[in-house]
Design a protein around this nucleic acid. Sequence first.
DNA 1: CTTAGCACTTGGGTTAGATGAGTGCTAAAA
DNA 2: TTTTAGCACTCATCTAACCCAAGTGCTAAG
Lengths: 338, 338
Amino acid sequence: MILKAIVRDYTSSGVPVGSKALAAQLPMHVSSATVRNEMAALEELGLINKTHSSSGRIPSVKGYRYYVDHLVQPDPVKANDIDIIKSSLDGQFLKIDEIIETSAQILSNLTSYTAFTLKPELQDSKLSGFRLVPLGKRQVMAVLVTDNGDAETQTFNLAPGVTGEQLEAVVRLINDQLVGKSLREVLQELQTKIPQEVTKYLQSPEGFLKIFGDVLTQAAQERYYVGGRLNLLNFSDSSDVDELKSLYTLMDRTDDMADVLGRPSDHIQVKIGSEMTNAILRDYSLITATYEVGDHGKGVIALLGPTRMPYSRMIGLVGTFRQELAKRLTDYYRYFDQ
Amino acid sequence: MILKAIVRDYTSSGVPVGSKALAAQLPMHVSSATVRNEMAALEELGLINKTHSSSGRIPSVKGYRYYVDHLVQPDPVKANDIDIIKSSLDGQFLKIDEIIETSAQILSNLTSYTAFTLKPELQDSKLSGFRLVPLGKRQVMAVLVTDNGDAETQTFNLAPGVTGEQLEAVVRLINDQLVGKSLREVLQELQTKIPQEVTKYLQSPEGFLKIFGDVLTQAAQERYYVGGRLNLLNFSDSSDVDELKSLYTLMDRTDDMADVLGRPSDHIQVKIGSEMTNAILRDYSLITATYEVGDHGKGVIALLGPTRMPYSRMIGLVGTFRQELAKRLTDYYRYFDQ
DNA sequence: CTTAGCACTTGGGTTAGATGAGTGCTAAAA
DNA sequence: TTTTAGCACTCATCTAACCCAAGTGCTAAG
């Protein structure tokens, strides 16, 4: 009970909490001396810490962990917040990406933290088509389509000397040999077999291979959306410019970020401070959650905030949001799948 | 001579400069008292200021202005920097946008400030084609091409009940009636005539109009690249979180930013602090420059830094860069135009 | 097991004083 | 008429001394 009170108090006030104030808050009547004794025991267990020898206590990472695992009960979400969520998700969206992107926006607005969203995805997306669309006399657009509906494009100018027939042959080659394979496989073959094959039709295939590679790696990357980037300036110690910089850099490094977010197994997962492998995040906490959309796979939403965030409220919010988003996307697919 | 010395000193040290230190620096022998007299005169003219009644002097906006207009001589660019510029621009680029984007990168790296680049453009780009490319059973990609080679795409899902023929008819309508008109005109007609015309072929044209509108406004927007966003954290007063936020927000607001950058008439233009109309930038300076690429129009590069930037070095750098970039792009077009 | 009492610790805030870099002004020197 | 030395004065910055409030641990009594 005392640990719970300490976490609640500290997360909302940000000030180390002392025995007297705590005693006054507890539901039963106990003196501050009693609380002090208990606090000493909690410190012994490594659940709370002092900032200096005569200060009040703050939860340790281990303390937050215990709190999150055993004590926290999600706050019911405010009716007003539910309204915001529902109405924001309510618009007419013509592609999933818009929904996922605004989701990150909503979540960050509601929390004043930074939110991440990943669209629902099956294990390994497969190549389902590649084509070149002529736009002008020399301008061409490469389009790569995957089986979960993503399309990646890239415009470029044709190098002199390349003819339409040659390109058509190459595109046919790609489609014949690679459609249905996973992007991972295709990427591998791009290193091995493909270059030789292409040389049969193009004498200098570098240009084509670069474009195809570009568009392929783009499609293969876990694409995620970030909402409330700037909120980082609120909740992080903005005097340490270097730390801010490395955080922002991290957020742009797609692969590292995919690592951080993971594909959580559990519905809602909380990672606290140094529990995260990435050292840059040692002063932050991350709440990740999956949302499931029938046979269209799972997506991820995540919330990055300070270690001392009001977990009960945030967990409640993320919980409701994942449900609403799942509902919304199921509707979306029902509408377009038919 | 004294104003020049004050600007040089202050921009490099950041500390208000006093009479004694200044006297020591001047080429001829004068006492600090003489310098004090001259400084009083300069202050009278509004060219320099004190931070408090007994402090050294710092240049005022008016002082920087005079310095930039009459006193500054561009530093010759370090051989090393020239190497970096040349080698970075040297790679094999398949589209202009890549060159323009890396330009912003290079410029920000060399200066530790934030750089902006706009691609070369003719006055008003015109619509040169619109098409819908089918990707899957219901998935379609809208492609809009302009006469200066930009292609804007947008994938979306077809609303149920819409047939291929209907869409073909609409696309034909768009191409017949609108190709050759400027994007501005087309945007206007989208508000007026187009909806009625489209209704002839589609009973609920909202979806199509949204997509067409999206892709059109995207294409019509001045698209610029930003390099070294994070450098802002170095040179701005990073304790004022709100200011930082509004600066970053400004950088993402395309229309406001287009306003800030303008299309400078002169080769190199310096705007200092409050000279900029936008109040958010009152503590910064902006160096803008055009680069000309034959009959492909003019582009813009710009550098945002603190008011107390070493103008001589920066002006030199921007000057060389615009030349190199113009050269590089001329080459690029020569290669692909033929 | 709980509580009152007490000595002790510590960060933060306030005050006073010292320091030094700078100024403006006056009067003498060039 | 311009330059310079001299001097009184201003102000930001730094340090040291001090107090205060909030907190602790410990002991002994309830």
